[in-house]
């Protein structure tokens, strides 16, 4: 089978644009990236089947029909993407509702460990100190308290 160069180029552009958007922080952009990526993947599926007349028996000779299998797959994929889009939109709205923006935030706990790494420290542990009632320094405590906020579920 010989590849259709137009498809190949469009696939490349859709994926490139999709990835560029996907790497953004705004959820709306991320979502648009997902949609473009999905379109790119669908077109790539189409590249794997030949083009031709609509695959409706009786309307054209069978050997001139386009390959129906990629079409069925794409249809499934399109509809799944629709569901995902709806979900992501709801997520973006919810994020906006809670935070006043729809940008993806960094993880707080990870940030805490990165801070430890920057300060060349180790996690609070049994290693040092002499008595048992020791507690972490105040700012650490506050940090971990904020980290746990909304987690008690």
């Amino acid at each position: 089978m010989s590849p259709n160069l137009t498809y190949v180029i469009v696939v490349g552009v859709l994926v490139a644009a999709g990835v560029t958007l996907l790497l953004e922080r705004s959820l709306t952009r991320v979502l648009m990236g997902v949609i473009l990526l999905g379109n790119g993947a669908n077109l790539l599926l189409l590249t794997g089947g030949r083009a031709g007349a609509p695959p409706i028996v009786g309307s054209a000779p069978q050997e001139e029909m386009s390959d129906p299998l990629p079409q069925a797959m794409i249809l499934t994929a399109i509809v799944i993407t629709l569901g995902m889009t709806a979900f992501l939109l709801a997520l973006a709205y919810r994020s906006w509702h809670l935070n006043g923006h729809d940008e993806v935030q960094d993880d707080v706990e990870d940030r805490r460990i990165m801070d430890l790494a920057d300060r060349d420290e180790v996690p609070d542990d049994d290693v040092d100190g002499d008595d048992d009632e020791e507690s972490p320094t105040t700012d650490e405590r506050q940090l971990s308290t904020t980290a746990k906020g909304g987690r008690a579920g």
Binding site: L37, A41, F87, L91, L98, V104, D107
Partner: peptide
């Protein structure tokens, strides 16, 4: 909740990317 939305976003978007890669 706020935490779950943030965590969920990471999870969902990474999974979506993996799905696209699988589809490709």
């Amino acid at each position: 909740t706020e935490t779950r939305i943030r965590a969920g976003t990471t999870y969902v978007v990474v999974s979506l990317l993996s799905s696209v890669i699988f589809l490709v």
